[in-house]
Design a protein around this nucleic acid. Sequence first.
DNA 1: TGATGTGAAGTATTTCACAGCA
DNA 2: TGCTGTGAAATACTTCACATCA
Lengths: 210, 210
Amino acid sequence: MDRVPEQTINRLPIYLRCLVQAASLNMPVINSLGLAQMAGTNAAQVRKDLSYLGELGTRGIGYDVEALIAHISGELGLTASRRVAIVGFGRLGGSLLGYSGFSERGFDIVAVFDADPAKIGTSVGGVRVRSIDELESGLAEEAIEIVLLTTPADVAQAVADRVVAAGVCAILNFAPVTLDVPDGVKVRPVDLSVELQVLSFHLARMTQEA
Amino acid sequence: MDRVPEQTINRLPIYLRCLVQAASLNMPVINSLGLAQMAGTNAAQVRKDLSYLGELGTRGIGYDVEALIAHISGELGLTASRRVAIVGFGRLGGSLLGYSGFSERGFDIVAVFDADPAKIGTSVGGVRVRSIDELESGLAEEAIEIVLLTTPADVAQAVADRVVAAGVCAILNFAPVTLDVPDGVKVRPVDLSVELQVLSFHLARMTQEA
DNA sequence: TGATGTGAAGTATTTCACAGCA
DNA sequence: TGCTGTGAAATACTTCACATCA
């Protein structure tokens, strides 16, 4: 089987979300057009994307919703829950810990690290805040697979280096810096200012063209 | 001049951030390789991207940092601050209102809407929470250009329809649904569960291949 | 019959490689 | 000389169109 294109990977969680909704509406089967309309794309794209995962549909019929949910979940590695840590427990880190959407989707936040002595040792939502000094040991102890990096920008790279050295291969980076990590480590940047600036670009274009 | 490719637009805010940092380090000039290293890309990409904006560099030298900041800021429409509204004032909406990074970059949150009578009329951070019933009039009154959509998923499409009908052309969508909007309206989805699932895919691939 | 799966065509994006200019 | 700007090549992705098969 060929490698799955990056853009296809980005759409798989969207398809999964749509399929779960279809299942909740008691649709046993969905075709590529129906899924495309829910996901905001087109039928050919859906078929091509799903074809990278195998021959999952039935010609003349479409895709079995439950079977496709199971298959995509498997591809996304969602069969077991994943152990997640928050590094940097400021305002944003606190919000993320409180967000129920993660555990609902199998992402369990089981460790929190911060440098502030006033926070260390306190417990929030059943999770104890650890010292950043215990980062390496704590990540190993808790068998962390994914780190949510929410430190201030000026220490993000240094903390990321330690996280990577501790063996973590997946980082969701909320700090407004581009992280430099070795091959094999996946970083997804989340930067709302970047998103707003992209929207602003389009607004500027519109008013200019009109 | 040719249209700027979408992927280039996505990188412009990154370049801008790197340039601002370079300026803070008192670098008067930066070359494509230096900017590429800061931005996590390569020199050819930087030159190609910037070439869509015009001939901004000096051969043999590089790019004047301040001039390039000014130019990219202009392209991104950041010369004046932009008026932003939060629609859906739950936990997430509250966090976003409290985030200082927006106003620092010229995005001013000047209106907040919610459906909960307990919240309507209260003031947070100098902004009064308005009833969702006043959505259309409020968006017009405050001359809102960008909406941060943070409603529950099940009403997100309906609210988005009203936001679009009120003339807003840019939406940052935090609801875990794919919004259907007319041509000319730009939506940027922000879904942390999707991001985590993409990371999970790569983790699954790694363990499988190893 | 009707919808999938997929080569092939069409686009978009990235990278190369070097002419051109300060 | 050294770095930008840019056609051209290479690669990646999307869309088309239709053979294929339940």
